[in-house]
Amino acid sequence: MDFHCHLDLYPGAREVYREAAKRNEFTWLVTTSPKAFAATSRALEPSPTVLMTPGLHPEIAHERAAELDLLLEQIAGAKAVGEVGLDGSPRFRAHYEVQRRIFSAVIARCAEVGGRALSIHSRRAVRDVLAELGRNPNFGTAVLHWFSGTPAELRAAAALGCWFSIGPAMFDSASGKALAAAMPRDRVVPESDGPFAKIEGKPVMPWSESQTAEGLAPLWRLSTEEAASVLAQNGRALLKLIGR
């Protein structure tokens, strides 16, 4: 399974999509903008093992802010939403208020339509993400993708009921390993974040769950097989929340 993947952005995307649909029990294809979601939905044949969702990535929020109304329309007919969120890193800080306006509208819309699962970007913005979720308690289920906050922020996110999607690239740093080890074990699911996430310069592929299990096993003091079993069990529990 892969709970956060930009399947439409790989080189040779159609072939990668077909392979993922065949290999994986489930792949969550997150999109970066409402128009990208519409285009991807037209370009790729639907698959029972792939969930395509509308989103508006915070890194391009200032460029695509005019698409917000379209996103709010798309949310009504979607089982889940992503990628959405906030990015407070220096490169995108100048557009933070635009990001906040969009994210606030998305979370409010999810609550309005009965709750949705969301794949959420929270780089250097965890407190604001959690505050927005807290203001809309009926928003649904938050899956924090590639979490990189502080240990205190991780505890706050866990207390709020958040899930966490992590991939092989997270184990490249000591801080990433420490955060992965501290996450609630029953709310961790695999992701690739391909093709953006890379290992040794190559994009992580959507069928990388076994690599995530290998990375988690020593942190959880389990065998790789046991870690893989936990991830699979968690993934199926999250799929029920998504409505798959």
Results as ranks from 00 to 15, higher is better:
F164M: 08
A152L: 11
M170F: 07
D172A: 15
F164E: 08
T150S: 15
W163V: 03
S175H: 13
E153Y: 06
K177Q: 15
K177W: 03
S173K: 08
A181Q: 05
M170H: 13
A180I: 01
A157K: 09
W163S: 00
A169D: 15
F171E: 01
L179Y: 01
A180D: 02
L154N: 01
A169Y: 02
G167V: 06
C162T: 03
A178R: 10
G167H: 06
D172Y: 12
L160V: 06
W163I: 11
A156P: 06
P151M: 07
E153G: 12
A181V: 00
A152F: 07
E153D: 14
K177G: 04
A174I: 13
P168F: 12
G161H: 05
A174N: 07
A174S: 14
C162I: 13
P168D: 02
A152S: 13
L179E: 12
P151T: 05
L179M: 15
R155L: 10
A158P: 09
A158C: 07
R155I: 11
A174Y: 03
L179R: 13
A159I: 13
G161T: 08
A159V: 08
A169N: 10
G167N: 04
A159R: 15
A169G: 06
I166K: 03
L179I: 11
A157C: 08
R155G: 10
A157G: 03
R155H: 12
L179G: 06
A169H: 09
S173D: 08
A181K: 07
D172E: 15
P168Q: 12
L179K: 05
A152N: 12
K177V: 02
T150H: 01
C162M: 11
A174C: 00
M170W: 14
A159Q: 15
G161V: 02
G176N: 09
W163D: 09
A169F: 05
T150P: 05
D172G: 10
F171W: 11
I166H: 02
P168K: 09
S173W: 05
A158D: 07
P151N: 12
A157L: 07
L179S: 04
A158T: 06
A178I: 01
F171T: 13
F164W: 05
A181M: 00
C162Y: 03
A156I: 07
G167K: 01
P151I: 06
L154Q: 08
E153A: 09
A174P: 07
F171L: 13
A181F: 04
A157S: 05
C162E: 13
R155E: 15
G176Q: 09
A180V: 02
L154H: 04
E153W: 07
L179H: 08
P168V: 03
D172V: 12
L179A: 04
F171S: 11
S173A: 10
M170S: 14
F171Q: 07
G161W: 15
K177Y: 01
I166V: 05
T150I: 03
M170L: 12
C162H: 06
S173L: 12
A178Y: 03
